[in-house]
């Protein structure tokens, strides 16, 4: 009798294991599919803004902004930034005198979100946005940065 009991228990254990495994595999596959769908989603400029990164050279060289990271990956909408923080003209902000780190620290421009709570603070991780002369050359396919000498303007 005890022999039958234990066999039944074993069978139950087996079927339970199969169910759990099945659930895990299915949910895993579903998540993977979702990820793939997200990654494979084509970049739509009308929804997410211009695909090419914006590069500012004033007041210092060179600072990058990538719409893709902000809109597609982090799900910000156009009116999160336009037209209150930035006008819809690429690179226009650098013509303004107040386009400085000081303004950012006081919540202007990028500083509206990059305040340390919504996104990393403006006075942290400098090189995340400040890609420099080398970074710009790389984005634009130049080789001046790699040569070590001075870039000819």
């Amino acid at each position: 009798m005890s022999d039958v009991d234990s066999r039944e228990k074993k069978n139950m254990k087996k079927s339970m294991f199969a169910v759990v495994l099945g659930v895990l595999l299915l949910s895993g596959a579903w998540l993977m599919a979702a990820e793939e769908k997200k990654a494979a989603e084509p970049y739509d400029e009308d929804t997410y803004g211009p695909e090419a990164p914006i590069i500012w050279d004033k007041p210092v060289k060179s600072v990058v902004f990538d719409h893709k990271i902000h809109t597609q990956a982090n799900e910000l909408s156009c009116d999160s930034c336009h037209d209150d923080l930035f006008t819809m003209e690429a690179g226009a902000a650098q013509e303004k005198d107040d386009f400085t780190m000081e303004t950012l620290y006081n919540g202007g421009y990028c500083g509206a979100c990059h305040d340390g709570s919504t996104a990393f603070a403006s006075n942290k991780r400098c090189t995340a946005c400040h890609i420099g002369v080398r970074g710009k050359a790389r984005l634009e396919g130049g080789t001046a940065a790699a040569a070590g000498g001075h870039a000819k303007e």
Binding site: V60, K61, G148, G149, H150
Partner: peptide, 24 residues
């Protein structure tokens, strides 16, 4: 960690010390 590669230092050095384009 504060360096942002704006290269104003390089430009200033070139101007001040007459450094040619092939050197630094």
């Amino acid at each position: 960690k504060l360096c942002i590669d704006c290269e104003r230092c390089k430009d200033a050095c070139v101007k001040t010390n007459g450094v040619p384009v092939y050197g630094f």
